[in-house]
Design a protein around this nucleic acid. Structure first.
Lengths: 122, 122
DNA sequence: GCAATACTCAAGTCAATGCTTAACTATTCC
DNA sequence: GGAATAGTTAAGCATTGACTTGAGTATTGC
């Protein structure tokens, strides 16, 4: 419940395709708000709202000089999500080995699963 | 643009806190639908819908034996998202090194240096 | 066979969120 | 100074998605 909020805000930011495209665009170099708004067929205000979401969760950073706001990727921004995934992949992988014994021990739990566990990895 | 849909479905699944909790629960061992529904203060049907979302994007797997459906983690399920993050972290980190020079070159104005990274394709 | 159990499906409700429009502020150029 | 530029904010609409209710199906136990 405590550190969920950081993961939560990052996931909420990334789940929107437009925001992922903005990230891709910024990965190739910093850009102003109007430069970002142009290729996406949407208004200034909409892009601005996306940028605010991205900045609020630490995925980008922006700086206003004069009347121009320049946005760029925040390098460590994806680290919390990467960590979260890493933490959950190890137990899940370990789970695979234990599965047979867990199911063999408890008899009131899922009844007798055939352990043909053909792991198809990606 | 094409393989976005897999990432998209995984992110949409993970963005819902309840579904992340279901994943946590399943990380500690397989469970039936009713076992999953009990701790969360919600109906059977709601949990079932979450499970369908999780299964549709490959994060869990389920199997029905008799009248009982048993769910478990799909070990490689988070791999596509982990790969997606890894692909985007490397360019972002490389960005960091250039940042200083970019800002040093341009005195105050928005940088216009997006043209030296044309060959970076992910 | 019949009742209880475990799950499934189909609407329907409600809140959250993306996007628009429109008015507004701050900065630059003439 | 005044117009054009670049961005900001607020309000409102429309879609999406989570959750509920209620009815329905298949399996198990007696």
């Amino acid at each position: 419940m405590l550190n969920y909020s950081e993961i939560d805000s990052i996931l909420r930011a990334l789940v929107e395709p437009t925001r992922r495209q903005i990230l891709e665009r910024l990965s190739r170099g910093p850009a102003t708000v109007s430069q970002l708004a142009e290729p996406f067929g949407m208004t200034f205000a909409a892009v601005l709202q996306h940028l605010q979401v991205l900045e609020a969760c630490g995925l980008i950073r922006s700086e206003k000089i004069g009347r121009v706001r320049t946005c760029r990727i925040e390098p460590g921004g994806l680290a919390p999500l990467a960590d979260w995934i890493a933490e959950r992949r190890i137990p899940a992988e370990r789970q695979l080995d234990r599965l047979g014994q867990i199911l063999a021990d408890t008899d009131q739990s899922p009844p007798k699963v055939q352990d043909q566990e053909k792991d198809e990895q990606t």
